[in-house]
């Protein structure tokens, strides 16, 4: 048992110069570092293990974001590359005074607020069903996972064909026109598609919170004379509050990115574009990197503000942000 715990460069070197007959060397206090070999090895290993993940994440997000800010300060249209020049905040003025931007922003906000609110209610119901149902729990959970897992574009096509007059089973049932060609009904269908797709995810996050409510607490509330509704509002909701806030935060930020459903359902027609859709159109369709990047930066800032509001105002605990429990 003369092998060292962590072969460092020095050890390897020592290994080479060691004679075959040499006795197993003892590691003593040759160096006197404040941290022992163990501790240092642990820190080294920790950094080493995290480095690849951290590098990839930083390379693919941090650098592009900075680059994006740089692009947003330029006039840069790939169709007219000669006109590329630094123009300061002019792009921001252009975007922020543009009514398309504000329409898209309004649409995005509307979709975010409505879908998250509806999902919270439906998700809570679904969570309770998945958590407490007496029969067919596996079946319910499996079915609920399908909307979560399914490719958004596939679901969006399903909704599109369902609401296309002639083809769809829903179009003729609920309206006589073409619902996807009118703004209000289009938005409603987009929201329906979003809600269908993400309610299960919300429900799963809430179910995690439900599992934290001790069964004894509910029994105690029952013996104390609480009705089912009182048990829900006075016992379950307070215990679940952290889980609810995390679910809301996740879903709000996710809803704000809405793109796939709109792309397939309306392609942004009839003023149903979201900010993501608008940025995409400027960028990939319009090839205007300057304006597209400006929108990207604005979206990023909005999301940061939403996250900040959640964390600071509501005290949402970021999941996984527990302190190192090594003690």
């Amino acid at each position: 048992m003369s092998i060292n715990a962590t072969p460092t460069g020095a050890d390897v070197a020592a290994e080479e110069t060691r004679r075959p007959a040499a006795v197993p060397k003892q590691r003593g206090g040759r160096r006197k570092p404040p941290l022992s070999e163990n501790k240092k090895a642990e820190r080294r290993l920790g950094l080493l293990l995290c480095a690849p993940a951290a590098l990839v994440m930083i390379a693919v997000t941090a650098y592009p974001i900075i680059y994006s800010v740089w692009l947003s300060l330029q006039r840069f249209d790939l169709r007219f590359p000669d006109q590329r020049e630094f123009i300061g905040l002019e792009n921001y003025v252009t975007v922020l005074t543009n009514e398309f931007w504000w329409t898209a922003f309004g649409v995005t906000m509307l979709i975010t607020v409505v879908t998250v609110a509806v999902e919270l209610v439906l998700g809570m119901g679904l969570a309770i069903i998945m958590h407490r149902t007496l029969i067919g729990r596996g079946l319910v959970r499996t079915s609920a996972l399908i909307p979560y897992g399914i490719v958004t574009v596939v679901a969006a096509f399903s909704w599109r064909y369902a609401w296309t007059p002639g083809t769809g089973y829903l179009a003729d049932l609920f309206s006589d026109g073409a619902p996807l060609t009118e703004r209000a009904s289009s938005l409603a269908i987009i929201m329906l598609a979003e809600i269908w797709k993400t309610t299960p995810f919300m429900a799963l996050l809430l179910m995690a919170g439900l599992a934290l409510v001790p069964e004894d607490l509910l029994k105690a509330a029952s013996t104390d004379g609480a009705t089912a509704w009182q048990k829900f509002t006075k016992v379950m909701l307070p215990v679940m509050k952290p889980a609810i806030l995390v679910a809301l935060l996740f879903r709000t930020l996710d809803a704000f990115r809405v793109f796939d459903n709109i792309f397939v359902l309306t392609a942004g027609g009839n003023e149903t574009s979201s900010v993501s859709m608008l940025a995409y159109n400027n960028l990939i369709r319009g090839l205007n990197l300057g304006i597209g990047s400006t929108m990207s930066v604005l979206i990023f800032i909005t999301v940061a503000i939403i996250a900040f509001v959640f964390v600071k105002l509501f005290g949402t605990a970021a999941p996984g942000s527990d302190d190192g429990e090594r003690r």
Binding site: A53, M57, I58, Y67, L253, R257, A279, F300, G320
Partner: peptide, 23 residues
Amino acid sequence: LVGVSLLIAMFPQVSLVSPLFEI
């Protein structure tokens, strides 16, 4: 690291589309 990955989890992907496209 935990903070950064949380940030990325909430990141609007569309914000990356333009720089990544160019890069």
